[in-house]
Design a protein around this nucleic acid. Structure first.
Lengths: 198, 198
DNA sequence: TATTGTTATACTCTATAACTATA
DNA sequence: TATAGTTATAGAGTATAACAATA
């Protein structure tokens, strides 16, 4: 049996946020969906910009996740490695704050990467409460390989666009993104507080 | 303590897929990230098409989730309502298959919407194992309101684009989407089997 | 008394598989 | 024996808050 008492004001999980259903599908016409049984109609791509960006964006992120698997690296772990690389010696919680993660979640995240020898914690001498986080040489190497994978995917994705089209696409998306607050440095999925008010 | 024995071959959760970190951030240069402490640099938008689409797409879906809250409707529930509307009287598991959900998950989903009076189950007379699912008048009304919300968001998102630019954007994204398998009818986040092989 | 990092805990979402009732 | 739907269960991911060490 299901508890259905309250409409739930809680923080939405990533899964909830992403299963956006097919909200833009009606934008073509007022029929709520293509006729049942007509498989061809159901294959017709959506004409909603919002729906299309979020759906394809989801597929791209999932694909990247798969591409990263040979490295044994989760996208979130990669995000952490990169953040550490951007300022080695930062305190654990400073990093957590920067990428919008609660400190308690950082612990396990850093643990696994430290166990794999990709980064290391050192006690800060001036404030012995704090852990300064550093990349290991191996961490730097893995970071480089992940970089190469990202570049490859980008090239595959945009391979058939010429430079002008690619620039055009980036600018058009950016103009759409303004209305949800362009997520600047870190992927919007990494933190839950990046939403603009609109 | 964390079990870090295996690199995890399991099905990634939506959260894992989405927290793509900032994989495209390096595409501008080989520096793994803007210099620490330089807040202005960290605000600089990414120049990676893949990163940008997935990050903004995430923000759009999350925003839509928020916009839907006054209706007390989750995006996934909306997806179900719409699918039911596209073929009323379909069996529960037929719908599940169509939107790529395991039958067991359909149960609670239909339960909550039935409890709220938005749809109803009727026993199929010819096969009394099957539940035919129908919208109620109230369900139809909520569907209409959700539709209006989706249209509003689309207009806000693309308000400053003219028709030509909007069409251009859709086509450019579609050309990128080909490489991850364009999710046609349902949002890629709704099912886990929509990935193309590339 | 406040802060860094850690651990404990409780809650949600999920897939799998066992179960029932019909066929 | 197979299928539609349901329920039970176990696992992962998460946020919150209590905790220890240090300031």
């Amino acid at each position: 049996m299901i508890d259905n008492s309250a409409p739930a004001t809680k923080t939405p999980t990533a899964a909830e946020q992403w299963s956006a259903g097919s909200y833009g599908a009606w934008l073509e016409n007022l029929e709520p969906a293509p006729a049942a049984g007509d498989a061809a109609d159901r294959q017709r791509p959506m004409r909603s910009v919002g729906f299309t960006i979020s759906s394809i964006g989801y597929a791209i992120a999932r694909r990247f996740h798969e591409l990263l698997e040979p490295l044994g690296l989760e996208p979130r772990e990669l995000g952490l490695l990169r953040t550490v690389a951007s300022g080695e010696g930062l305190a654990q919680q400073t990093i957590a704050e920067r990428i919008g993660l609660p400190p308690s979640r950082m612990v396990a995240l850093v643990d696994t990467l430290e166990d794999r020898g990709l980064l290391e914690r050192r006690r800060n001498r001036e404030d012995r409460r704090a852990h300064a986080v550093y990349l290991t040489p191996q961490g730097r190497e893995v970071l480089g390989r992940a970089f190469a994978i990202a570049v490859e995917q980008e090239q595959r994705l945009t391979g058939e666009l010429n430079d002008e089209e690619r620039e055009q696409l980036l600018q058009l998306i950016a103009r759409v993104g303004v209305h949800v607050g362009i997520p600047p440095e870190f992927h919007a999925g990494m933190r839950h507080s990046a939403m603009a008010d609109e």
